[in-house]
Design a protein around this nucleic acid. Structure first.
Lengths: 348, 348
DNA sequence: AAATATTGTGCAATCGATTACCCTTTGTTG
DNA sequence: CAACAAAGGGTAATCGATTGCACAATATTT
């Protein structure tokens, strides 16, 4: 409870207030306020005088006071797993860009992919009285109770990418199913016969969908589905290497792998090179995300492109619509397209 | 001026206030406030009762009200060129981590490396009444007037990485001079004879220092300094390619290049491969930053490691010290170490 | 010219937490 | 036991902007 820090040494700076303007023009504070907010009840003449004086005195509105009174902060909160992932930092760029043009600030919190920290983020954002929240859930979050802090109080909430079905909110995702499908079909078209899949945690929709898309492609082309070629992974660099070993050290190894993210695909490429497999001749690899490095790895990585920027922008659009109540439907799901980026790792 | 958006449809949610607690316990609001702030004038018994009731009612302090009164927001602002650069996103992670444990929120603004947007960020942060600001300046910022918004009002300001000497503030940098020096000396030790340098904009300290370090190494080893081997660049992917052409298409090309960032080094590697130069045999390359991709490029890139996380943490430490006025010296410069990461691109 | 509308402003309450100052108790000291 | 101190808690002003309501001045209508 006692987390407020007070700075007793703060110098009282001469922040000019509307009352300073009022005094200078010999009018009342309310008139100044209305003039600055372009209220129709104030004459143009007065407005101009106020605006000029405001400029002259270097007036900057005190958002705190205004927010307190109107009880809306013009701030949206963002919860993401980690800012250092390109997909997420692009999403933030998209979020910020749009939010800012619409007059909103953005507060960003990282969960570091940990459920407990995610709950902290929720508290922080709530305490900051954000007007709405955009979130992509931590990889190991299984319990969504903490989000009730928002939903219970009707604070708009939009999920993107890693969404949550338990809560009835709007969401923005890319077409993971289709991504999985075209990834697998691409490998099939290249003549691969035994296509493995390294999937993500199956409590997250995106990974379920990528897997399902992959399965559908196999079925469509009458491939036998081999359980042992489908592995669930945390999709980290380390775990990717473990998966690579599991799949490639076997005498009966697959001739292609579709990994649910680029990091895992990278792990596979590196391990395959280590044990002397040629890519793509002995093993074709497809990733997911089109991380910046995927273009420069050797061999360069075929992958599914998903635009973090677009996802972020869409999510913000949705959220701001809810906040300003322009739309009645607050359970929309927007699905953005994905695209296959063909590179060397599957080019045979 | 008129940028506040008001949401008339906001539902009045039952945010419990200290007065709700006060009423429930039949005491006054001030007592509740004091109890929650652990004021010594309140008895343990009362404090406990207040805390229990606060929990029971699901009380969450309204930061806005508190901030307005105390005129400190417990928020620090961050201005960075772009969040999608690994160095900067790591820095943010460092900043956030420390700030949060000290009870501060973080607002992040991206300048997209443009001076005008940087000025916007300054306005935004100022309007948010942040308690202090951490900034790394945009690559083309030449005029620092906008920062006076902070300095004039004694709002603490700390620069990191891309610092500004015109303003008298504290700063955190890595040892760019040494980085340039060891990069060049490393190439010398590998037997390179004509070492080129692709430098960054020379109004930024970091690039001046990297160049100077490089020069010192050449001088130390009695290398002739050839003007035409030193190019100033914007250090983007495209500009890097242009530089690569300029340096490598000449019949009298260098046998090594030290680039002031990894992106440029990457451009060089790609172009060199394109025109059939072998790396490192024909051309050794060293970058700067140790971006994540540099490990996976082929050949992998020798580079200078600088920890964004550490820089961010240090800058925050400095800033919070100033905010809470623990130290008198507000013009400290902290220099963090760098490290050479040897990889294939220079291994001959 | 009287009655009514319209326009332009001011007054004062309000948002929720903090805090200087004052007033009770209860405890301590000579 | 008087005198005083300390502990515990209440009152009300305050931070700066917003806004419902009242009202004066001017314009329009009948």
């Amino acid at each position: 409870m006692d987390y407020k820090l007070h700075n007793r040494n703060m110098k009282k700076e001469s922040h000019t207030t509307i009352h300073d303007i009022a005094r200078a023009l010999n009018i009342s504070g309310s008139t100044v306020s209305r003039a600055l907010n372009d209220n129709s009840r104030i004459s143009e003449k007065t407005k101009k005088a106020v605006r000029d004086m405001a400029r002259q005195l270097g007036y900057q509105p005190n958002a705190l006071a205004s927010n307190l009174r109107t009880s809306c902060t013009n701030t949206i909160g963002v919860i993401i797993p980690r800012i250092s992932r390109y997909f997420f930092s692009s999403a933030i760029t998209g979020i910020e860009e749009l939010a800012r043009t619409r007059g909103y600030n953005v507060i960003i919190c990282q969960s570091n992919d940990q459920e407990a920290r995610e709950a902290d983020c929720v508290q922080t954002l709530f305490a900051s009285r954000v007007d709405g929240v955009i979130s992509s859930i931590a990889i190991n979050t299984e319990n969504f109770e903490h989000y009730k802090t928002f939903t219970d109080r009707n604070i708009p909430l939009v999920f993107f990418d890693r969404v949550c079905d338990e809560l009835e909110t709007s969401q923005v995702v890319v077409d993971d199913f289709k991504g999985g499908f075209i990834a697998a079909e691409h490998l099939i078209s290249k003549g691969c016969k035994r296509i493995a899949h390294i999937g993500g945690p199956q409590h997250l929709n995106i990974y379920i969908n990528r897997l399902q898309g992959y399965l559908k492609a196999l079925r469509k082309h009458n491939f036998e589905i081999e359980e042992e070629l489908i592995i669930e992974s945390l999709l980290t660099r380390e775990d990717g290497e473990a998966c690579a070993k599991k799949l490639l050290d076997s005498p009966n190894r697959p001739d292609a792998i579709f990994a649910a993210n680029d990091i895992s695909a990278l792990s596979i490429i590196l391990y395959a090179k280590e044990i002397g497999l040629r890519i793509p001749e002995d093993l074709a690899v497809v990733g997911f995300s089109n991380e910046p490095f995927s273009e420069y790895v050797s061999p360069s990585l075929t992958t599914i492109e998903q635009s973090g920027f677009d996802v972020g922008t869409k999510a913000t659009e949705l959220l701001l619509d809810i906040i300003t109540n322009k739309t009645g439907n607050h359970q929309e799901t927007i699905v953005l397209p994905v695209k296959l980026i063909e590179r060397e790792s599957s080019n045979r």
